Computed example of a mutant assay.
Amino acid sequence: MTTEEKIAMLEDVMDLDEGELTLDSVLSDFEEWDSLSKLSLIAEAKKEFGISIKAEDIKQFQTVKDICDFLND
C-alpha cells in the first residue's frame, strides 16, 4: 500500500474529506482523532496489514507520518 493509500485510509477512518491530511498533519489538531477513530485504525491495520496496534503504540502517534511509518514496519 502506498503512502497516499495509507493517508486515504486514515481520512476514511477519521471521516475526513480527501486531501485534508498530509504526512505532516498533527493528529491532535483534528477533533476527529478520537477514540472511535483509534479503534477503527486498529481494525483497519489488522485487516489490511495483519498488524496489531496496541494502545501504547497509538499514544506514540503524533503525526500521520508516525502512523504510516508504523504500518511500514
Rank of each mutant, 00 (worst) to 15 (best):
22 T>M: 08
14 M>Q: 03
60 Q>T: 03
27 L>D: 06
73 D>H: 01
13 V>L: 12
67 I>N: 02
48 E>R: 09
42 I>T: 11
30 F>L: 11
17 D>V: 15
8 A>L: 10
27 L>P: 04
36 L>T: 15
17 D>E: 14
59 K>L: 00
1 M>I: 10
47 K>Y: 14
24 D>I: 08
65 K>R: 15
46 K>A: 12
4 E>S: 13
56 E>A: 03
47 K>V: 12
3 T>L: 10
8 A>D: 08
5 E>P: 12
65 K>Q: 15
12 D>G: 10
55 A>D: 11
71 L>N: 04
13 V>F: 13
1 M>T: 08
43 A>W: 07
58 I>Q: 00
40 S>D: 14
1 M>P: 06
48 E>P: 02
10 L>W: 08
32 E>N: 14
34 D>A: 11
50 G>S: 12
68 C>L: 05
27 L>C: 01
16 L>P: 10
45 A>T: 05
23 L>Y: 10
11 E>Y: 09
13 V>M: 14
4 E>M: 13
35 S>H: 15
56 E>N: 00
35 S>E: 15
48 E>C: 05
29 D>G: 10
5 E>A: 13
25 S>F: 01
9 M>Q: 13
67 I>K: 02
66 D>R: 08
9 M>A: 12
40 S>W: 09
6 K>H: 05
39 L>Q: 06
62 Q>K: 14
6 K>V: 08
9 M>W: 05
71 L>S: 06
18 E>M: 00
41 L>K: 05
54 K>N: 03
71 L>Y: 06
33 W>I: 07
30 F>Y: 10
27 L>A: 07
25 S>H: 11
4 E>F: 13
9 M>R: 05
55 A>I: 03
61 F>Y: 04
34 D>T: 01
62 Q>Y: 02
29 D>N: 14
51 I>C: 03
4 E>T: 12
55 A>W: 00
30 F>D: 08
26 V>T: 02
54 K>F: 02
67 I>R: 06
3 T>G: 09
16 L>A: 12
24 D>A: 13
19 G>W: 09
